[in-house]
């Protein structure tokens, strides 16, 4: 555990809490892509199956359970409790265009051809693109993203960027590297770059955020 990973994990946790609080307090999931949230739930489900097979640390297990739980609650709030406020007409990204290629890639490019390892690889690849429906939704509507949604996206994006620093650190300190995680993590971070720029130049100056289509 190093500082980059710890802050990254806390940022990841903060993102999930921000989104949950936003939906709960406003009693509305307007502007939130349910498709992205379903994909994140799939990411956690396929990656954290090792909860049943391997124990790393209490921290590791607790965080995994919390991520799973928060993610399920978010999906429940969007598709059941506050379904009436879900803006499905604008959440039109074709999820199969992401999930099918990602599943194919996970079967073809992985560390080991085993069930758990392929699911882990699938989760890494899927996480890197899971935010696209959300970004697409904001750019497509031309509507301004709520500031709180921007904070959510920033926290979620910066988490993987911090993980890249963590991987560089670990490569030099421990000699470990995971090519799959690093490449996917870089792709993921690049997808957020445009958003990061807009976030810093607009949201920090008190304006609302729009993503040009």
């Amino acid at each position: 555990m190093n500082i980059f990973r710890l802050v990254g994990d806390l940022s990841h946790l903060a993102a999930l809490i921000i989104l949950l609080l936003k939906i709960w307090k406003s009693r509305s999931c307007a502007g939130v892509s349910g498709k992205s949230q379903i994909m994140f739930a799939m990411v956690y489900m396929t990656r954290y199956l090792d909860l049943f097979t391997t124990f790393v640390s209490v921290y590791n297990s607790v965080m995994k359970v919390v991520f799973l739980l928060f993610s399920f609650v978010t999906v429940y709030l969007i598709y059941f409790k506050f379904k009436a406020t879900y803006d499905g007409n604008h959440d039109t990204f074709r999820v199969e265009f992401l999930v099918v290629p990602v599943a194919g890639l996970a079967v073809l490019v992985n560390h080991e051809f085993s069930f758990l390892e392929i699911l882990w690889t699938f989760s890494i690849y899927l996480e890197s693109v899971a935010i696209l429906p959300q970004l697409f939704m904001i750019s497509k509507t031309g509507c301004e993203a709520e500031t709180i949604t921007s904070h959510y996206l920033f926290a979620l994006g910066i988490y993987r960027a911090l993980y890249i620093a963590n991987w560089i650190f670990r490569y030099y300190m421990e000699g470990f590297f995971d090519f799959i995680a690093i490449v996917a993590g870089c792709v993921q971070t690049i997808l957020y770059c445009d958003f990061f720029y807009l976030y810093v130049t607009k949201v920090w100056k008190g304006k609302r955020l729009t993503i040009p289509a």
Binding site: D50, H111, G175, A181
Partner: peptide, 10 residues
């Protein structure tokens, strides 16, 4: 050295 099978990251 590649990543160990026991994955310690989240």
């Amino acid at each position: 050295q590649m990543w160990p099978a026991k994955k310690d990251e989240l």
